[in-house]
Design a protein around this nucleic acid. Sequence first.
DNA 1: ACCTGAACACCGTTCAAGT
DNA 2: ACCTGAACACCGTTCAAGT
Lengths: 212, 212
Amino acid sequence: MTTSQETQRRPRGSLSRQSIGAAALRVIERDGLDSLTMRRVAGELSCGVMSLYSHVADADDLRGVVVGQLIDRLDLRPHEGESWQDATRRMLSTYADLAASFPRSFELLALADADQWPVAPHMERLADLLVTAGLTEEDALTALSVIDAYASGFLVIAVRNRPAVASAERAAPHRHDQLARLHHLDSYGTGSEVIIAGLEQRFEGHRAGRKP
Amino acid sequence: MTTSQETQRRPRGSLSRQSIGAAALRVIERDGLDSLTMRRVAGELSCGVMSLYSHVADADDLRGVVVGQLIDRLDLRPHEGESWQDATRRMLSTYADLAASFPRSFELLALADADQWPVAPHMERLADLLVTAGLTEEDALTALSVIDAYASGFLVIAVRNRPAVASAERAAPHRHDQLARLHHLDSYGTGSEVIIAGLEQRFEGHRAGRKP
DNA sequence: ACCTGAACACCGTTCAAGT
DNA sequence: ACCTGAACACCGTTCAAGT
């Protein structure tokens, strides 16, 4: 009897940058960033490894697709009549939320090349957000530089060192552990306010006519 | 005729964590962080791959040795009568110097687990530096958290995106390029001062008796 | 145009064995 | 105790070939 192939070919339209990126995101969050390999993504999609190369140039391009999908999850449109301080707070907490939702993918976005697709247009949008909230173009770039560096550094380190949560080993926290954890888990908001205060002072200096 | 082996065995004492770490550092700075592999370090030392495992537990431990050697290059002992502001400026510029000297290894230190060897004792030393300069223990930890996150984020991003310098393509910089470069190459000092100003304001608030 | 398998040059690490 | 080579289970990507 003529048995039809058990491993049937994938229908032509069933793969796309979109679906490949989504599969990559699932792989990273399930197995870790080091497990993002062409072969595992192909496994996740039950397709041949080389099929991916019809939609994605190489492994680096694949990471770019993931970063694009992370950016798409951010909602950072200007709010009506929002102060630049509140816009900054919203940016910082939105980033923190994303890091909490996608802890193992987050650093792909946070440490990505800010001058290149897909991050560059995103940064422009963030600058617009601050300009809309009342800052000059120059002040917006100054603010964005500090904010982005702080959020990226803090959240990447926090998320890399995040304790393997939910384990039953939450018994008697040592002082050393407390200090370490306080340092990098609860102080994000404190640092945010420190930076906002520093920016306020610098921008007031501008208006008072002191040298920039 | 009885030819003696061309590939002579390595003398017993000639390998160590120290020499292996130094070789690893050379490999990273010459070929990039992705090229730090057990096999390439073995090649650099002209020894068998498995010889490394007598001194180093695994690839992760090897990265730890590199981080330790980077930390050893930092000179951050307390200075006599130094204000916490100046101590902070010294910390920030020392980190920047290290990032400039070891651009491809730097992120191993910057993004390493701060609660673990060899970074944890280093962080304690940094906290001591700020306490010696006059901050309370609590304020020192607050400052260190912001400073470390900012420096790590800024410098890792800057160093990852550093232009392939020295090429002859420094002709007519577009406006977009200028903005992008200004954003992440010259503004490190600006951000440092913003953070110091923000910390000053917060710590003054303490002394004035406002709620922490 | 899109999907595929074999092949090549890598990788970390285990194992058994030399000195 | 320290050094080693073969072997195993991976990896990205090239190539030639199917539909």
